[in-house]
Design a protein around this nucleic acid. Structure first.
Lengths: 260, 260
DNA sequence: CTTAAAATTATCATTATTTAATAATTTAAT
DNA sequence: ATTAAATTATTAAATAATGATAATTTTAAG
């Protein structure tokens, strides 16, 4: 265990289910002497990546809240897309959960979400949560924009039940790519349906999606055209804003670099 | 530069204003050879604390979003208080910004906020932002619960204009402690006023506050009793929930520790 | 498709840090 | 006040980080 991994292994112990650990517990879990863990934990506490809680427990520190905020206010995708999620929800014909998500390793992560206040059911899509790459419209609108080698690599990491399943998935993906949007039913949450469009920006390396999730019980066929119209128009708007943000960033860097 | 500091120094370069850096820029800023920075950045990218963006730039990685989410769903203060912020806003007599904040080093950090949809002015209190310890009701309701040595240490870090200012501050603090709540006007944002109560839990080491911020132009004296009533009752409710969460955590740890 | 520049990774001797066993100290609970 | 638990300090030995340079890969332009 060396380098950053030393610190990351400790952080990775912390989860929603188990959010506080003592040094001795960490020491056992990582099979590392407690004197070593004490030293490392002390470092991380002083950097505010961990904080000491009561009863000699430690929990994740406020540095994560701070850096999360910086991402929120500066990440081009979040900055460009966040303001439109509420608008999209308000314009949808029925209550919805609206999600901006992006590729994160070989998973998909929701980076912003807005739920209509009266939406009743629970959804798995919540900011910061990792979702499977091959299920749900949100994910599909992301993977459908990926091609060649990178697509191969991602697909190879997935466990399809059979080669047939894999081929069906790839064929569906091709179809969706042609159509320009995705629809799935109950792949992630039972009783919910999802619609999604791709969001991308090559210069910024953004591979993302914008999606709306509805309660199947509320959904009528006549809603479909409005949903697609909303998603595609807001999708384009988000891409336009991402581009503007990109140009701002470039100007800024040009300026600061020439000063030096 | 050694240990975790090596990594933290790089992360600390990233800010809202400057959210992407190249390896060469980092290398210059930290006066460290680029071969070293390349190695460190690579480590952090693979741990997802940084991510490579377009044009050989790097930005903060999705690990922060992930861990932030874990804090959101598990931090006793956030878990207990978050759900009440909207309720508090809805019950306040005029539009408001409602904030849960806590001590963070020698600063105060907002850990959850809810703004009435129609609240017009901008406030400095946004989740994740660090605020001064000695200005604003939000901060004062935190520092007023701190005593003895710890208070001394915190006060000594502050730059008061004069000894007189310092004494006035300490006297006001004493008064507020007696009253059980704080009021300030325009100390953080001009044209805004703040009301706050303390939130604490000794066992969990929580030193926090619940506050409501209003537009001075909308505020009438007759609102005051309602505001105080709301803050104090929700403050007690939040403390009660923190306590329940504490007991849940204890049970859980008891269980998992006895299994081993 | 080629080519040149820029970005990134690999190599390795030197230097510095981390490790972990143990002792010493501090803190917390009765 | 006392004792156990938690934390910090100390140390030689083991290990890893550094940074100069070379090698490779990627990117952008013609």
């Amino acid at each position: 265990m060396s380098g950053f991994l030393r610190y990351k292994k400790i952080l990775d112990l912390f989860s929603e289910e188990r959010s506080s650990w003592t040094v001795l517990e960490i020491s056992k879990a990582l099979e590392t002497p407690s004197s070593t863990i004490y030293r490392i934990v002390r470092e991380m506490v002083s950097a505010e990546f961990l904080e000491s809680a009561a009863g000699s427990y430690f929990r994740l520190g406020p540095a994560f809240i701070k850096f999360n905020r910086i991402i929120n206010f500066s990440d081009p995708l979040v900055r460009a897309g966040q303001p439109f999620l509420k608008k999209l929800a308000d314009e949808n014909p029925i209550t919805s959960v609206n999600v901006l998500a992006r590729l994160y390793g070989n998973k998909v992560m929701c980076v912003a979400d807005y739920k209509s206040p009266s939406f009743k059911k629970n959804t798995s899509y919540q900011r910061g949560k990792l979702m499977p790459l091959i299920y749900g419209a949100t994910s599909r609108a992301i993977i459908m924009q990926i091609t060649n080698r990178k697509l191969q690599d991602l697909i190879n990491l997935e466990n399809f039940k059979s080669d047939e399943d894999k081929n069906i998935f790839l064929k569906d993906l091709k179809n969706d790519r042609k159509k320009g949007y995705c629809f799935t039913e109950g792949q992630v949450d039972k009783g919910l349906i999802g619609f999604a469009v791709s969001i991308s920006n090559k210069k910024l390396g953004i591979e993302a999606s914008l999606s709306s999730i509805f309660d199947l019980d509320e959904f009528l066929l006549e809603h479909e055209p409005i949903i697609y119209a909303n998603l595609t128009s807001y999708g384009l708007l988000v891409e336009k804003y991402i581009n503007e943000i990109f140009e701002d960033i470039q100007k800024y860097h040009h300026k600061t670099n020439s000063i030096r």
